[in-house]
Design a protein around this nucleic acid. Sequence first.
DNA 1: TTATATGCAAACTGTTTGCACGTAG
DNA 2: CTACGTGCAAACAGTTTGCATATAA
Lengths: 162, 162
Amino acid sequence: MAPRPQAAVDAAFVAHCRARGLLVTEQRRAIYAVLAASREHPSAEQIHRAVRARLPRLSLATVYKNLEALRAIGAVSDVNSLHEHGRYEAALPGTGVGQPHHHLVCIRCKRVLDLHDRRLDAFRLGAAQAHGFEVRAIRVQVEGLCPSCQMARPSAAVRRSV
Amino acid sequence: MAPRPQAAVDAAFVAHCRARGLLVTEQRRAIYAVLAASREHPSAEQIHRAVRARLPRLSLATVYKNLEALRAIGAVSDVNSLHEHGRYEAALPGTGVGQPHHHLVCIRCKRVLDLHDRRLDAFRLGAAQAHGFEVRAIRVQVEGLCPSCQMARPSAAVRRSV
DNA sequence: TTATATGCAAACTGTTTGCACGTAG
DNA sequence: CTACGTGCAAACAGTTTGCATATAA
């Protein structure tokens, strides 16, 4: 929470890259700097646009490659980590799937299960109101490993992804 | 929750379509039937594949058009409703963005704000364990209208989207 | 009969990949 | 010096759109 001076953030970033074996390039630092300075959860294209102000030759492909590289070393996380492609469910009251419920998602096989839990439904507002939001829905997504994926030994990629 | 006989679900679906002015086609019923019968939160392509077993000429475009039409009348909802495109955030401990936190998303302008709320962090397990999941993270996404979007009068599209 | 839905193919958008060149260490 | 990173362009995947044909009501 306490916003650190950007120089300190940059130093920590550089150290983290070195420790994990990534080269430290100007592009990489600039991309991270944009992310660290933003509260906007920007998309790859927004990052590209922002960094381009300083490095006009930066390519979008480099942004993507870096986001992936930084995610792999834990310096960046994706806000909507899972199932980036549309997933749907029946919602008609009467189908038995209409009630409010939450989701249990397996970070390995990407399965999504419904989760019915009274405690989770209990929420209402709170800090959201401080931001002036008019709350319409609360969606809880529990991420973890499903039983069958616990069997298979976790790959390095998965182990570091959460 | 109580899984209704599929005939009853189909009847309710047909009635809902008629009430909202949508024609009742075989494709539409089949698409909905697949969704209502599934606990898998399928993607458009999975739905397409499943329905094709019965209606081999069904096109993928029709699946997409129907998912949108059904979403508009509230018969279907998307599991990952918002920002289907990648959104990132700095995660390096020390940047001030590393701590566990949740997201407040505006369903209209799609802005994503961080939400820090001790009560939300309080969760741990619960029903998830019943499913045998090894829980790694809990992500709470509060959806609503941000202050500036409350000003602008809601469009019909937005009003029905939650 | 007529408004709506379907199927196909082409267009679009976001993301990924291959490769020649550049640069950090 | 050498491995890794960058930029470009082409390839891809998921989704959307335009239009002629088919069909529900």
